[in-house]
């Protein structure tokens, strides 16, 4: 059997992305199914991430699967020195699909090579987090009606922000224009700017974050500016309030503009923004459920047709 693991979605074709978006749309209309009745989904979190784990486990439960796994690696034998390979081999005896979060980069790729059970990468260190990217794409698609020709503004920590890097790469086929708004110390790394040039992606770099500079945005993707990312704390003090989105900055923005954020937020979006029609980050998190239902079904070989023709909807 071919391995249907989802380690990365960076190389997915536009057709495949659209297919998964269509699946997610079906699940949003009817999230509760019995498609996975009798199946076992394992969630192995070698690094705690309550938010991602709950989202995956809810997705599995709403599809009728049973869930096994661990949320704290201290409870498992990997803390006694068991190799990742042995843990994956052991769990492969029990589960139909393995959702895995790991602190080491490349762990999901390796796991997918040592088992025939499909692996879904729920984050491997600073490397990849495809289900987050999928829910970001779904959120953009749903709110803008398309993925094509959008002005996407990325704000805050663009240096360490894994989600913005993945989003940037997965948008390359849709002719986006990116605006990178970040303090000097956290600007978009050179390798991603080279990536943009190689893929003919337009981008504009700026440090000003004001009502005027965001007026043309279709999407504003906010990220956390964390103190511990700065080598120069003076610099942190200087810029920490410069990348906070406030309600009074939204006066000139486009009607269709939506604000995304991978959550949890600290202070980079003021609470008064929550009331705005542009705020979308809570719905975005909810979209994670539908995107993950789609990914789980896809790796198990359940097709869009199966979902559309599902007579067994609860």
């Amino acid at each position: 059997m071919e391995n249907r693991s989802v380690v990365s979605i960076a190389d997915y074709s536009k057709e495949k992305i659209q297919y998964l978006l269509d699946m997610a749309t079906e699940f949003e209309a009817r999230p509760n199914r019995r498609l996975l009745e009798g199946k076992v989904v394992a969630t192995l979190f070698f690094e705690p991430s309550t938010r991602t784990r709950l989202s995956f486990e809810t997705a599995a439960n709403r599809l009728g699967a049973r869930v096994i796994g661990f949320s704290d690696p201290k409870a498992t034998s990997s803390s006694k020195g068991e190799t990742l390979k042995d843990t994956i081999k052991m769990v492969s005896n029990y589960a139909d699909v393995i959702v895995m979060r790991h602190y080491l980069e490349g762990a999901a790729q390796y796991a997918s090579e040592v088992t025939n059970v499909p692996i879904i990468n729920a984050g491997d260190g600073a490397n990849l987090h495809p289900s987050q990217t999928m829910l970001d794409l779904y959120s953009i698609y749903k709110t803008q009606g398309t993925l094509y020709n959008l002005n996407i503004y990325m704000v805050g920590d663009l240096k360490y922000g894994r989600t913005v890097h993945s989003l940037l790469m997965s948008m390359r086929k849709y002719n986006p224009t990116f605006h990178f708004i970040a303090p000097k110390e956290l600007e978009m790394p050179e390798e991603y700017k080279i990536y943009c040039k190689q893929n003919n992606i337009n981008y504009i770099e700026q440090q000003d974050f004001t009502e005027d500079t965001i007026a043309d945005a279709d999407i504003i993707y906010m990220t956390r500016v964390q103190r511990e990312r700065f080598s120069d704390l003076m610099e942190y003090e200087r810029v920490k309030d410069a990348y906070i989105l406030k309600a009074d900055m939204l006066g000139k923005c486009r009607d269709n503009m939506k604000i995304l954020h991978p959550l949890p937020r600290v202070n980079e979006i003021e609470y008064d923004v929550d009331e705005s029609k542009h705020a979308y980050y809570f719905e975005q998190a909810q979209n994670g459920l539908y995107a993950r239902e789609a990914l789980i079904c896809d790796v198990l070989g359940i097709t869009l047709d199966d979902i559309k023709n599902d007579k067994n909807i609860k």
Partner: peptide, 12 residues
């Protein structure tokens, strides 16, 4: 060269 790469932390 990446210390947090899986290859530096697993016999593989």
């Amino acid at each position: 060269a990446n210390p947090v790469c899986i290859t530096n932390n697993e016999p593989m």
